[in-house]
């Protein structure tokens, strides 16, 4: 396995970005995240995670058009990179292998 490390929160953020596809910008990601994971996410925590992921090369981002709402500020849309996709798959693969390795009786508590 490669040396890529990715945290649980980062993973969820990346998946959400993937889910939202063309519509993945700050507020949308935050709302979707909160809806699905049923926990409160602050803009700060989310934005730092996004920044980190972008720096690691899992995500790219670009500005959208200027609109009349949002105080005239542009949205920043995020997209999962091919490298990011590979990492997500790796993570899932690892999990899957682990699940497969669990003896059937171990979880019959």
């Amino acid at each position: 396995m490669s040396k890529v490390s990715i945290g649980e929160f980062e993973e969820i953020v990346m998946l959400t970005v993937a889910v939202l596809y063309k519509d993945a910008y700050g507020v949308a990601i935050k709302k979707d995240l909160e809806k699905r994971s049923k926990r409160n996410v602050s803009l700060g925590a989310m934005r730092t995670a996004l920044k980190r992921l972008e720096k690691k090369g899992f995500l790219t981002s670009e500005f959208g058009e200027v609109t009349a709402v949002r105080g005239g500020k542009r949205k920043r849309y995020f997209k999962v990179t091919p490298y990011g996709k590979k990492v997500l798959e790796q993570v899932m693969e690892t999990r899957k292998r682990l699940w497969d390795a669990i003896p059937e009786l171990a979880l019959d508590i």
Partner: peptide, 8 residues
């Protein structure tokens, strides 16, 4: 820019 927009 984008954070301020999100907040607003």
């Amino acid at each position: 820019e984008d954070l301020e927009g999100d907040m607003i």
